[in-house]
Measured scan of single mutants.
Amino acid sequence: MDEEYDVIVLGTGLTECILSGIMSVNGKKVLHMDRNPYYGGESSSITPLEELYKRFQLLEGPPESMGRGRDWNVDLIPKFLMANGQLVKMLLYTEVTRYLDFKVVEGSFVYKGGKIYKVPSTETEALASNLMGMFEKRRFRKFLVFVANFDENDPKTFEGVDPQTTSMRDVYRKFDLGQDVIDFTGHALALYRTDDYLDQPCLETVNRIKLYSESLARYGKSPYLYPLYGLGELPQGFARLSAIYGGTYMLNKPVDDIIMENGKVVGVKSEGEVARCKQLICDPSYIPDRVRKAGQVIRIICILSHPIKNTNDANSCQIIIPQNQVNRKSDIYVCMISYAHNVAAQGKYIAIASTTVETTDPEKEVEPALELLEPIDQKFVAISDLYEPIDDGCESQVFCSCSYDATTHFETTCNDIKDIYKRMAGTAFDFENMKRKQNDVFGEAEQ
Rank of each mutant, 00 (worst) to 15 (best):
E3G: 10
E3C: 08
E4L: 04
G11A: 05
T15D: 01
E16H: 03
C17W: 03
I18T: 08
S20P: 01
S20M: 08
G21V: 06
N26I: 12
G27V: 03
K29E: 04
H32R: 02
Y39W: 14
Y39H: 06
G40S: 03
T47S: 13
E51V: 11
L52P: 03
L52R: 08
K54M: 00
G61A: 08
G61D: 09
R68S: 07
D71G: 10
V74I: 08
V74S: 02
D75G: 08
L81T: 14
E95Y: 02
D101C: 15
F109C: 05
Y111W: 03
Y117K: 14
Y117S: 06
K118V: 01
P120T: 00
E123D: 06
A128S: 09
N130K: 13
N130R: 09
M132I: 09
K137N: 05
R139L: 06
K142V: 05
F143M: 10
L144W: 10
V147D: 13
G160S: 07
V161L: 12
T165I: 11
S167D: 09
R169S: 03
R173T: 08
L177I: 14
D180H: 05
V181E: 14
A190P: 01
D199S: 12
D199Y: 05
Q200K: 00
I209T: 07
I209L: 03
S215L: 08
Y219F: 07
Y224G: 06
L228T: 15
L234Q: 01
G247R: 01
T248R: 11
Y249F: 07
M250R: 04
N252G: 03
N252A: 04
P254Y: 15
I259L: 08
K264M: 01
V265N: 04
S270V: 11
E271L: 09
G272L: 07
C277F: 02
K278C: 10
Q279D: 02
Q279R: 10
D283N: 07
P288M: 15
P288Y: 01
K293T: 01
K293S: 14
I300V: 12
I308N: 06
N310C: 05
N310K: 01
T311A: 09
N312Q: 07
N315H: 13
N315S: 08
S316E: 04
I320T: 12
P322S: 07
Q323R: 10
N324E: 12
Q325P: 07
D331V: 03
D331G: 07
C335S: 12
M336V: 09
M336I: 10
I337S: 13
H341Q: 00
G347I: 02
Y349W: 08
I350A: 02
E358Y: 15
E358T: 14
T360K: 00
P362S: 06
E363Q: 12
E367A: 10
D377N: 11
K379N: 04
V381T: 13
V381N: 00
D385I: 15
L386M: 00
Y387R: 14
Y387D: 10
P389A: 08
I390L: 10
D392V: 12
G393S: 07
C394L: 12
S396R: 05
V398F: 15
F399I: 03
S403Y: 00
Y404S: 10
D405S: 14
H409Q: 00
F410A: 15
T413M: 15
K418V: 12
A425T: 12
F431G: 02
F431C: 01
K437Q: 12
A445E: 15
